[in-house]
Design a protein around this nucleic acid. Structure first.
Lengths: 135, 135
DNA sequence: ATTGCTTTTGCAATTTGTTCGCAGGTATTA
DNA sequence: TAATACCTGCGAACAAATTGCAAAAGCAAT
C-alpha cells in the first residue's frame, strides 16, 4: 500500500488551498485566520478568506490544528504537534511568552482530583505581566 | 466631611445609567455587556447599549469592575469585590464552575519564580471538561 | 436658582471578525 | 473519462464592538 498523504489519511481532499493553509499554520507558530490568509497570499494571492476559515475549521476537526484564546477577539491557530507549551500573555506589552506544559501539571492534577475537571491547559492563555513589564 | 458616593470618590459623575450598570454587574455575578444591558433595561428601558459598553469600560478603569475571558467572543464582567474564584469552563456543556483562587497558588508562584511572570489568574478561564461531561 | 463648562448619553453609522448561500470548479473513484 | 461528492470564490449577511456628533445632564462657582 502506497504512502498516503496526511490529509488524505484523514479523509480530506487534497487541495492546494488546504495544503497551503496547513503549511502556513505550521510555519507561523501562532496565527490568526487573518495572518494565515496573509501568509498564504504571499505566494498564492487568489485564496479567499472564507476558504481559510473553512479550512482551519476542517483541519481542526481532524485534529491537525488547534485553536487557543489569547485574550481579546479572535482565536489563534497552532499546528497540533506544536502545541506543547503554555502561552504567557502580557497584559501590558501584549507579548506572548512560552512555558513548558509541565509547569501546570500540579495545577491540572489538583483540578482533576478535587473537582473532577479535566483541564485542557493549552486552550486558554495565561494572563499577567511579563518580567520586562513588571519592573 | 460628608460621605461621598463611591462613584464620585473615583472622580466619576453620578448618572443614573452608571449606577444602574454597576448595580447590574453586582447582581448578575458574571455578565456580558449584552446581559448587563438587558438587566438594566428590565427596569429602565431607554438605556443604550453603547452606554453600557462605555460605562463598563469606565468602571473598569477606576477598578470597580473587572472583565474575564471565558472563551469565545465577548468578555464577561464582574464586580471587582466578587472576583475571588477561578472559572472552570466546560467545553462540552458550556457550564461555568468555580474553584477557589488558592487552587492556582502553586502554579502562580512557579510562574513568578521561574519566569518572572505575574499571573492574573482571574482574568482567563480554565478550559476543560467538567465532571458531569467526562463520564 | 442661574450660568457655564465638561462629561455623558442616545443614535446612527462604521468597523471588524466570522459565517452563509450558491454557482462553478476540482479531486477522487469507478 | 464520466459521475459525484466535496471545495472554492464571491458577495451578502451577521454579530459584536466602536466611534462621531449633537443634545442632554451633572457639577462647581456665582
Amino acid at each position: 500500500m502506497a504512502k498516503q498523504h496526511e490529509l488524505r489519511e484523514k479523509g480530506l481532499r487534497l487541495t492546494p488551498q488546504r495544503e497551503l493553509v496547513l503549511q502556513a499554520v505550521r510555519e507561523l507558530g501562532h496565527a490568526t485566520p487573518e495572518e494565515v490568509a496573509e501568509k498564504v497570499r504571499s505566494t498564492h494571492p487568489g485564496i479567499n478568506l472564507s476558504t481559510v476559515y473553512r479550512n482551519l475549521e476542517t483541519l481542526e476537526n481532524v485534529g491537525l490544528v488547534l485553536h487557543t484564546h489569547l485574550g481579546h477577539g479572535g482565536a489563534t491557530y497552532h499546528a497540533a504537534e506544536e502545541l506543547t507549551h503554555l502561552h504567557l500573555v502580557c497584559s501590558v506589552c501584549g507579548s506572548i511568552g512560552d512555558a513548558p506544559i509541565d509547569t501546570a501539571a500540579n495545577f491540572v492534577n489538583t483540578l482533576a482530583d478535587d473537582y473532577g475537571f479535566k483541564t485542557d491547559v493549552t486552550h486558554f492563555a495565561i494572563y499577567g505581566t511579563c518580567q520586562k513589564c513588571s519592573k
